[in-house]
């Protein structure tokens, strides 16, 4: 039984709050690059960039892009072949603040891969992490700087995160885990389906 945790309005409010927090922490929108991790992280990054532009009308050039981490994963050969997505890094990231955006933070392995990928594109001054949902169960020493919703869950549970642009509807819900202890989604791609 899926239980809805966030509806569309909740998600919108969470993203606006995160946008404020990013501006506050960065003291404005200067030297800010927002990079989403495909697929849904890219959508969220775009919405955050739009929100920032609304909050700070002077911030006309908040740079937003995508950072694919497929080639940096550590589970190659353990799962089916993943299809990479496009990486679009808008200009140089040397010396700027990069905010990585992902949908669900789980084991932390995706973010580890993202940090490696980022390093191959340049040397940012600061890297921050924004996620819509943090469901716990970290396997690496990684934490998010900006969190839409902390959602303590058991590993047997499944987090569904839908966004309009990708899925046609929008909510975050949680499914009870399989009673027989059957397959759970491993890795951290995540909980979103």
């Amino acid at each position: 039984m899926a239980r809805t945790v966030l509806n569309q309005a909740d998600i919108a409010r969470a993203l606006i709050r995160i946008s404020h927090e990013i501006l506050e922490s960065n003291r404005g929108a200067e030297n800010l690059v927002i990079l989403g991790i495909p697929t849904r992280g890219v959508v969220l990054a775009r919405r955050i960039a739009e929100a920032i532009a609304r909050i700070e009308p002077t911030a006309t050039d908040v740079r937003v892009g995508s950072l694919d981490v497929t080639m940096y994963r550590d589970d190659l050969g353990h799962t089916r072949t993943r299809t990479p997505s496009r990486t679009l890094v808008p200009g140089s990231i040397d010396g700027v603040t990069v905010v990585l955006v992902d949908d669900v933070l789980y084991s932390g392995r995706t973010i580890r891969a993202a940090l490696d990928a980022l390093g191959d594109h340049g040397r940012p001054k600061i890297v921050r992490l924004a996620v819509l949902v943090d469901r716990g169960h970290r396997e690496l020493p990684i934490r998010a700087d900006f969190v839409g919703k902390n959602l303590p869950s058991s590993t047997a549970e499944r987090i569904n995160l839908h966004l309009l642009e990708v899925d046609g509807d929008e909510f975050v819900s949680i499914d009870g885990g399989p009673v027989d202890g059957g397959p759970v989604d491993g890795g951290d791609t995540e909980g979103a389906s």
């Binding site: 694919d68 080639m71 940096y72 190659l76 299809t83 990479p84 997505s85 496009r86 990486t87 490696d116 390093g119 191959d120 594109h121 340049g122």
Partner: peptide, 20 residues
């Protein structure tokens, strides 16, 4: 399409991926 992604790597500062 994957080759397009690989071609993008050639334009980066670090032209190498850790994948394999």
């Amino acid at each position: 399409d994957i080759a397009e992604d690989m071609a993008d790597v050639a334009d980066r500062e670090v032209k190498k991926l850790p994948t394999l």
